[in-house]
Simulated assay, not measured.
Amino acid sequence: MVQTQVDLVLVTYESRPVLPAFFHSLRQFTKPPFRLLVIDNNSKDQTKAYLQAMRKDPFFGPQMRLVFNRTNLGVAKAWNQAVKITSGRYLVFLNPDLVFTKDWLQKLVQSAARHKKAMVVGVKILNPDGTIYHAGANGKIRGKGQMDRPGLFDQEKKVRWVQGSCFLVKREIFGKIGGFDERFFMYGEEVDFCWRVRKAGYEVLYTPVSIYHYRKGSQISRAARLQLRRHSAQLLRAKWRKK
């Protein structure tokens, strides 16, 4: 089974409130074998203690590794850190505020394996109320705000970029285009990465695997989030308007 080649990568920061739902659904809907790397960006709440407890769990413990950073490195740096200390053919980058659905990982990996030129594979991100948050983007985000239903965005499709709360990357692409741009502290790093993948002649693929995203992964103020989003948007414009 190709899943033996999968490293799941979870980056946490002040994420304690959402972790029980994440781990419960991961246990319920994810078939081993897989490896789970959790990188904590110096949380000050009870995140570290919770992760250490999960490390002792019989289901997660044998395949789970914890890394505790001394400072908050941001998302892109933590993802690059994960690339260096994992070895699987596929890396699946995850937010802590996710709830999974049945056989999500098996379906995601099968889709990646079918499409040889696709170096990034994203999923159907749903809001808690069942509306679509993101189904890939071609100019604009597909499906945003629509109530999900059978037949809606249920086909694999090449897209320009996918949303970064849950997406697969084939390890081989890092040797061709490098890692994530560490100037993006949070937000925008997956967009930049997808654009670099496509510029290098490879594909970004959307696959209709449903994942619920609660968008409360870190206890960061609304003002701080807005500032981070604006900064990332400025970086993207400055970097890609010259291309």
Rank of each mutant, 00 (worst) to 15 (best):
V2R: 15
Q5I: 04
Q5W: 08
L10Y: 11
R16D: 12
L19R: 07
A21S: 01
F22V: 03
H24W: 01
L26A: 01
Q28L: 07
K31M: 08
P33E: 03
R35T: 12
R35E: 13
L36S: 03
I39T: 15
I39G: 15
N41I: 12
N41D: 08
N41P: 08
S43V: 07
K44V: 05
T47Q: 11
K48P: 00
A49S: 12
Q52C: 08
A53R: 15
K56E: 07
D57G: 07
F59H: 04
G61L: 06
Q63H: 08
Q63S: 06
M64R: 07
R65Y: 05
R65I: 00
V67L: 06
N69C: 15
R70W: 01
L73C: 12
G74Y: 05
V75S: 12
K77L: 06
V83T: 14
K84F: 02
R89W: 11
R89N: 03
R89G: 07
L91F: 09
V92E: 05
V92L: 14
L94G: 08
F100R: 09
D103A: 14
L105S: 05
Q110W: 12
H115R: 04
M119K: 12
G122H: 10
V123E: 04
K124Q: 15
I125Q: 07
L126P: 15
P128S: 01
P128M: 00
T131P: 03
Y133W: 11
K140A: 01
I141K: 02
G143R: 03
G145E: 05
P150C: 00
W161H: 07
V162L: 12
Q163N: 11
S165T: 13
S165R: 10
L168T: 14
V169H: 01
E172T: 09
E172C: 04
G175I: 06
K176W: 04
G179L: 03
F180W: 06
R183M: 02
F184T: 03
Y187W: 05
G188K: 00
V191T: 04
W195A: 02
R198L: 10
K199H: 10
K199T: 12
A200K: 12
G201L: 14
Y206V: 06
P208R: 07
S210D: 14
I211N: 01
Y212W: 03
Y214L: 11
Y214A: 13
Q219T: 12
Q219H: 06
L226V: 11
R230Y: 00
S232M: 02
L235W: 00
L235M: 07
R241N: 01
